[in-house]
Amino acid sequence: MSQTHTHGPGTHPGHTHGPPPPPPPQMAMRPPDPLMQAVIEASFRPVNFALGPPENGSVLCGLHKLEKCEGCDVDYTGLNRLSRTLHSNSNLRCPPPPNMVNKQLSQAVVNTKEEGNALFKGGLYDKAIQRYTMAANIASQRPPWEHQILLREELATVLSNRAAAFLEIGDYISSLVDAEVVIQLRRNWSKGYFRKAKALLKMDRPKEAREAIQVGLAFDPDNKELQEILARIDHFLARREQGHQSNEMASPDPQSPIPPAS
């Protein structure tokens, strides 16, 4: 590797430098293999379908004229939704690259979530829940081709806050479910495990709460919030083990409401 010149992108050097480089990761725009093209062509099976509204812009099953049909084992809802989106945005000739982001929508999610946070801090938990639900619905209206991280973070944050609000009004099941969804959305975010543990403690399921915290700590070992709650759960379990139930029945979590994340 004594040469110091470079090859422009996409240019093919007429000489080599020592050992041959590894083959380029496919998609180097080679012409497609005609043999494989023939295989693909031979595997084609025509689909029996019908065109539906608006303006023949949707696909329905051929037999029953349904968008989603169990009898025909087809579901064209995703296809038709995208077709409608492309059709109604006539300035879009194709889905834009994922980094083209609808900033207005992001702002609407943030605003709605912050309204929820203000209501939460004022103790109006029911109203806060409504706002968080609305923020989640706005977020899920993002164009489907936008970078997944946007929807992921928006939903996780909003649902984490909603889990906290559900906990405050005593709806522990809804709180637990939201926490579970937060975990599924962002597996390495400590908040989901924290919310899950809080709900489980309220439901008097301290062992499961402990398990949730341990999973969270596996992702984020230095997380103070998780470490603290783990210590409290362990203290509580040890006391219970010793038979000190009588005046330790209160759940081991702090009594003050937890302010929403952000």
Binding site: L51, E55, S58, V59, L79, S83, L86
Partner: peptide
Amino acid sequence: APESLLKAALVR
């Protein structure tokens, strides 16, 4: 089929 539908089907 309209082009928007073809493009959507290509994405699928």
